[in-house]
Amino acid sequence: MIIARWSIDARFGHKTVVVESLKKWLTDIGSQIGWTPPNSRLLTGSVGMHESTVQTEVMLNDLAELSTAWDKLATIEAHKQWSKDLEPYVVSGSPRWEILRLL
C-alpha cells in the first residue's frame, strides 16, 4: 500500500477558497478516478509546517494504481478547467507530489 500526497500552498488570505475548491474537486472529479472518502482525506498545516499548506492524501495499492488514476485524470475536461480556476489562489511553484509506502 502507498499514500500519494499532493501538497499546495494557498496564497495569503485564500486558504478557505483552496480548501473549498479541493473538497469540491474530491466530490466531483476525484470520485471519477476512485478517490472517495474511504481512501482519501484533506489536511492543512498546523504545527511544524506552513499554515497555508493544504494536502490531499489518497491510499492506493501501488504505483500502478496511481499511474492509472493520473492517466484517467488527464482525460477529464473538468479537471483541466478546475486547475485553471484554482491557479490564482495557489503559490506558484508550491504544488508537489510525495509518495509514501505503508509499513
Rank of each mutant, 00 (worst) to 15 (best):
W97F: 06
D28T: 09
V19A: 03
R41S: 09
L73M: 14
D71A: 12
V58I: 14
I3Y: 13
S31N: 03
W70M: 12
M1W: 06
S94T: 02
S46T: 10
D28A: 14
G34H: 02
R101I: 13
R96K: 13
L73H: 08
Y89M: 04
A10Q: 05
T27G: 00
L102Q: 13
G30A: 13
T75C: 08
L102K: 13
T44A: 13
K72E: 10
G13V: 01
P38K: 05
W82A: 06
S21Q: 13
I99D: 06
E87I: 03
T56P: 00
R101P: 06
T36V: 15
A10D: 03
K24E: 09
G93S: 12
V17I: 14
K80L: 08
N61K: 14
S31L: 04
L103S: 14
S21A: 15
L66Q: 15
V91L: 01
G34W: 10
L86K: 07
T27C: 08
S31Q: 05
E87G: 03
G93V: 02
K23M: 14
D28M: 04
L22F: 02
T75N: 11
G13E: 06
V19G: 01
G48I: 11
V91W: 00
K23H: 14
R96F: 10
V90P: 08
E20L: 14
T75D: 12
P37Q: 11
K15T: 11
L66R: 14
P88H: 11
K23A: 07
E87T: 03
H14T: 15
T16D: 14
A69L: 07
M59A: 08
K24G: 03
